[in-house]
């Protein structure tokens, strides 16, 4: 986990707007010594090495375990089970699994943290949400996804958290195809 958090810190620093020169838009920037541009190349290559090493180690661990004791139905197990048809290369499998790990952790926790902040700040909204939950789920079990449809106010709280304090842009360049309408 520590390796994941370290690499996410480093990656976030690289991806921060302004931290890396826009070399895809202005390729001539690649000819400027990187020392003048915040050592963007070394920092990017460090993240590349960290991702390859961590994601590769985790997938190889599953591969070894499958050889020794067999499949366990994890996400990577399922990808490997189907890989006869998919024929993904090792590197693609590393990133399929690694991105799920990376993209699914700090994003969700950031939304949950701003929601908690809102709940502290606006106790009457917290109370209303808890009254809704208490009418659907008693003390003998915690709420599950099957309760979703019965908890519209909680859903509204979640959506408002995502609007009120957006956790930020996943600032990856996109490419639009011709004729695509734009908002």
């Amino acid at each position: 986990m520590q390796r994941l958090y370290d690499l996410m810190d480093h990656w976030s620093e690289v991806m921060e707007i302004g931290a890396t020169p826009p070399v895809d838009d202005f390729p001539w920037l690649k000819y400027i010594p990187q020392q003048l541009l915040g050592n963007w190349l070394s920092r990017t290559q460090q993240v590349q090495a960290e991702m390859n090493s961590l994601y590769g180690d985790l997938v190889r661990h599953v591969q070894r375990r499958r050889e020794q004791t067999g499949a366990l139905g994890s996400f990577v197990d399922k990808v490997l089970d189907q890989n006869k048809g998919l024929e993904l290369k090792d590197h693609q499998i590393y990133f399929l699994a690694g991105v799920a790990l990376e993209g699914g952790s700090d994003t969700s926790s950031a939304v949950i943290t701003s929601c908690i902040q809102a709940m502290v700040q606006f106790p009457e909204i917290q109370k209303k949400a808890q009254m809704e939950i208490d009418a659907v789920v008693d003390e003998s079990r915690t709420p599950v996804w099957a309760d979703f449809a019965q908890l519209p106010y909680v859903t509204q709280v979640v959506k408002e958290s995502q609007r009120w304090r957006p956790i930020g842009g996943l600032g990856f360049p996109h490419t639009l195809t011709a004729g695509k309408s734009h908002h």
């Binding site: 799920a100 699914g104 994003t107 969700s108 939304v111 949950i112 929601c115 908690i116 709940m119 502290v120 106790p123 917290q126 949400a129 808890q130 939950i133 789920v137 915690t142 709420p143 599950v144 996804w145 309760d147 979703f148 908890l151 909680v154 859903t155 709280v157 979640v158 958290s161 995502q162």
Partner: peptide
Amino acid sequence: LGERNIFLGIVKLLWAFRFE
């Protein structure tokens, strides 16, 4: 995944705790 993750995280916290 995110929708389920975030909803479950928040609804379980609200079920369990008081935030003040």
